[in-house]
C-alpha cells in the first residue's frame, strides 16, 4: 500500500484515508494503534468533519475530555498515546491536515 504523503508524512489526498492507512501512518510514528488510540482518532475526525479544521492541542484536549471523559481529556494522557506532539500526530494518523495554528 503506497499512499502519497507530503514531506511531513501527512496525506496529500484526505479521501484516501482508511483504517488500514491509519495503521500504516501510525507505524511510521512507531505507534501501534490500540482501542485507546482509535477512540481519540474518532473524536478528532468528528471534529474535523464538523469544523473543517484540525484543532490545536488545547482544543483537542478539551474535545477528548468532553467526548471520552475528564481522565482522558489531559495533555499527559494524549502525550503517552501520541508522542511527542499529540495534536500533530493524531491529525496525521487520522488522515487530516497538519494543525496550522499549532506551533
Amino acid at each position: 500500500m503506497n499512499i502519497p504523503t507530503d514531506k511531513n508524512g501527512y496525506l496529500l489526498n484526505l479521501e484516501q484515508w482508511t483504517p488500514a492507512v491509519a495503521e500504516q501512518l501510525a507505524k511510521a510514528e512507531d505507534i501501534r494503534l490500540s482501542d485507546a488510540h482509535w477512540e481519540v482518532i474518532s473524536v478528532l475526525r468528528a471534529f474535523y468533519q464538523e469544523y473543517s479544521v484540525s484543532p490545536a492541542m488545547r482544543i483537542l484536549v478539551k474535545q477528548v475530555g468532553m467526548a471520552l471523559g475528564t481522565e482522558k481529556g489531559k495533555s499527559i494522557y494524549l502525550m503517552q498515546l501520541f508522542p511527542p506532539s499529540p495534536a500533530k500526530i493524531v491529525s496525521k494518523i487520522a488522515g487530516l491536515p497538519r494543525p496550522d495554528n499549532c506551533f
Binding site: 479544521v53 495554528n101 506551533f103
Partner: peptide, 8 residues
C-alpha cells in the same frame, strides 16, 4: 488562521 493561531 491567524486568529486561531493568536488564540494560543
Amino acid at each position: 488562521d491567524a486568529l486561531l493561531a493568536a488564540s494560543a
